[in-house]
């Protein structure tokens, strides 16, 4: 059985019926770590709110653990954990009080489920008497995860848990998620960071309310429709502008200290293109596309 199913889900907001989700369909398998990858405004939070029964879809069907999100909202609320994008714990309660509160709401105790949160809670233990509002970003995020886990949910929904978090803390967070996977919790997590797609079993790329692709991260990269080359140059911005103007170049984007340049599959006249660039000492090699390359190709085609 799929843990989460979205079947042609539609959502629009306001009098002008601004479209948030356009016929979104996807399935998350039990025990899977599934990523929703896309920028702010793509519709990721709307998906989470529908699946956690906080808003109603305007079209289509959705289910969690085999139960319909509209009919079985009580069952779903008891069975899932949800960490919203905006920090939504009680700022004036301490770390320990927040955790105790959420445990009580779900009719359980911290002790009963301590095993599940132990690895994360050790980071928080030194600050357990501090009000949640006085914690740093990384610590708030860890507390929110503990509170979402304290009732042993079968499915965990995490809406942009790593946004605004530095690369080191982000990596720590993903390591925690991997450990949860081993406890057979299904995790649906969203992120605007393309490099985090690689941490998931499968991902859906989403932009402007539409799913661009669903596959494993490797599958997403393999589906890149062009031949991709990496170009190194001492004068990166001049090289970029000249390459972009060349008729054979499909796209050219900067990636840190290099450029990624794409051509039609099987294009052989790379040397001619490079000869037309007035910058000397270009270093060029053919590379495999990453998730970010694929995302941009889908976005612009």
């Amino acid at each position: 059985m799929s843990a989460v199913v979205l079947d042609h889900i539609q959502k629009w907001y306001g009098k002008e019926k601004t479209i948030a989700l356009k016929e979104v369909s996807l399935e998350v398998e039990e025990g899977e770590l599934f990523g929703l990858i896309g920028p702010d405004g793509a519709g990721k939070s709307s998906i989470f709110r529908i699946l956690t029964t906080l808003i109603l879809p305007d079209g289509g069907k959705a289910s969690v653990l085999g139960k319909d999100v509209v009919d079985a909202y009580k069952f779903i609320r008891e069975s899932v954990g949800y960490m919203p994008g905006r920090f939504s714990l009680y700022q004036d309660l301490t770390v320990e009080e927040n955790l105790h509160f959420f445990a009580t709401v779900f009719g359980t105790t911290i002790e009963e489920n301590y095993d599940l949160i132990k690895d994360i809670y050790v980071f928080l233990e030194p600050f357990k008497h501090r009000p949640a509002g006085k914690l740093s970003g990384g610590m708030k995020q860890k507390l929110a995860l503990c509170c979402a886990l304290i009732h042993q949910p079968k499915v965990l929904f995490l809406d942009e848990p790593t946004t605004g978090v530095d690369p080191v803390s982000r990596k720590e967070f993903w390591d925690m998620l991997k450990r949860l996977k081993s406890k057979n919790i299904t995790v649906l997590v969203s992120t605007p960071y393309m490099d985090e797609a690689g941490m998931c079993d499968r991902v859906a790329l989403i932009h402007q309310g539409k799913i661009l692709a669903i596959d494993s991260p490797e599958g997403i990269s393999k589906a890149y429709p062009f031949d991709l080359y990496e170009v190194k140059s001492d004068k990166i911005s001049v090289t970029l502008n000249q390459l972009r103007k060349h008729i054979s170049v499909k796209s050219c984007y900067s990636f840190g200290d290099v450029l990624h340049v794409s051509f039609e599959k099987g294009f052989t006249a790379i040397n001619e293109v490079l000869d037309a660039i007035t910058i000397d000492h270009l270093e060029v090699k053919k590379i495999e596309a990453g998730v970010e390359d694929s995302f941009m190709a889908y976005m612009t085609n």
Partner: peptide, 20 residues
């Protein structure tokens, strides 16, 4: 201060064009 957080990859690069 983190001007491109959450911005899509194409627009993020356009933002850097403006910076340049």
């Amino acid at each position: 201060d983190e001007p491109t957080g959450g911005v899509d990859p194409v627009t993020r690069r356009q933002f850097w064009d403006l910076i340049y």
